[in-house]
Design a protein around this nucleic acid. Sequence first.
DNA 1: ATCATGACGTACG
DNA 2: TCGTACGCCATGA
Length: 115
Amino acid sequence: MNKMNDGHDNHEKIYDNLFEAIYEIVKRVPCGRVSTYGQIASLVGISDARKVGYAMNSLERDDGVPWHRVINSKGKISLRDPFMAEVQRQMLGSEGIEFEGDSVDLSAYLWDPQE
DNA sequence: ATCATGACGTACG
DNA sequence: TCGTACGCCATGA
């Protein structure tokens, strides 16, 4: 669920938890680019990339978080569910991301946070 | 309150 | 290349 508001946080970027912070970073990844669990983790200041995966897994509905643009450091899709993995692949494909077999060339599509 | 569980990355042998 | 250890969140039973 989403219980991030105690009722008085608005203009300040204060997050009740790590997942909210992760979602804000993922929202910055533009169409046509991909990011990795590790990169997102680094940007929110944590060393555990798994937590980024946990955060993505916890998304129940679309909160404007482009979860499909987050893949692993090997350039592959990490979703365990084959169906959803294919969905993710299709979504990336429709955004212009090309696959070489089952992986994406990160040197060509990795998001640069400075952009 | 404890326990299991789940989309990872890096270091090391 | 492969297996293992570690990092240490959020949620539901």
